[in-house]
């Protein structure tokens, strides 16, 4: 975890995320062990929540719904999980799919009037005002630029993976990342990052 962050939560007590531990736990969960799946939830929920929160522009309610849907979808898809990929990578892709499905479905548009963006991080999670400013700036990026920045710039998706998940061309993904970085630099008063 980042040194600048000082979360105080139940999540501190869970075992560190390692691929080996996941492999063992996933195998148990595939056999229908719900306690094993809960361990996976505890281990990964903070990352999945952060991803959903950033993709939804800091909308906590929608992010929490997406987290729940993503884990339920993951449980149902576990028998199809191929252990040659990391569980966390697979889970993140499910989370992205869940967020995008919610945005493609018109239901999300109906929520616009009532679901106000909120601070993505509060001071429980970070006392670094500069980072809070970055989070706010990311949250207010246009959707397309924000999605690519979060996926590629923060969570290590390749442009090919991001393009596939978002249903856009690879070139568009690259252009959106460039746009996101330029907008962020402007909003944060930084020099042109390119």
């Amino acid at each position: 975890m980042d040194a600048a962050v000082s979360p105080i939560s139940e999540y501190d007590v869970v075992a560190p995320d390692t691929a080996a531990e996941d492999e063992f736990t996933v195998a148990a969960a595939v056999r229908g062990d719900r306690r094993a799946f809960e361990r996976l939830y505890r281990r990964h929920v903070a990352q999945v929540h952060a991803l959903c929160l950033r993709l939804t522009g800091g909308r906590r309610d929608r992010a929490e719904d997406c987290v729940q849907e993503a884990f339920v979808a993951a449980w149902r898809a576990l028998p199809r999980f191929e252990s040659r990929s990391r569980f966390s990578t697979w889970l993140h892709r499910i989370a992205v799919n869940t967020v995008m499905a919610g945005q493609r479905g018109l239901a999300a548009k109906l929520e616009v009037a009532t679901d106000e963006p909120v601070e993505l991080l509060d001071r429980r999670h970070s006392d670094d005002t500069e980072l809070l400013g970055v989070e706010q700036a990311i949250a207010t990026l246009p959707d397309g630029a924000r999605h690519v920045l979060v996926m590629v710039g923060l969570y290590g998706f390749s442009h090919e993976e991001a393009a596939a998940e978002l249903g856009i061309a690879v070139g568009t993904s690259k252009a959106q990342l460039h746009r996101a970085r330029r907008l962020l630099a402007e909003r944060l008063g930084l020099e042109d990052p390119e």
Binding site: R34, Q68, H125, E130
Partner: peptide, 28 residues
Amino acid sequence: RDLDALLAGLPREVPPARDLWPGIEAAI
């Protein structure tokens, strides 16, 4: 700091404000 340093400094983990497991457990 420059933009890359700022982005790298963002936490990759943000716990939800409430425990979401009970809802997931009920669904599965």
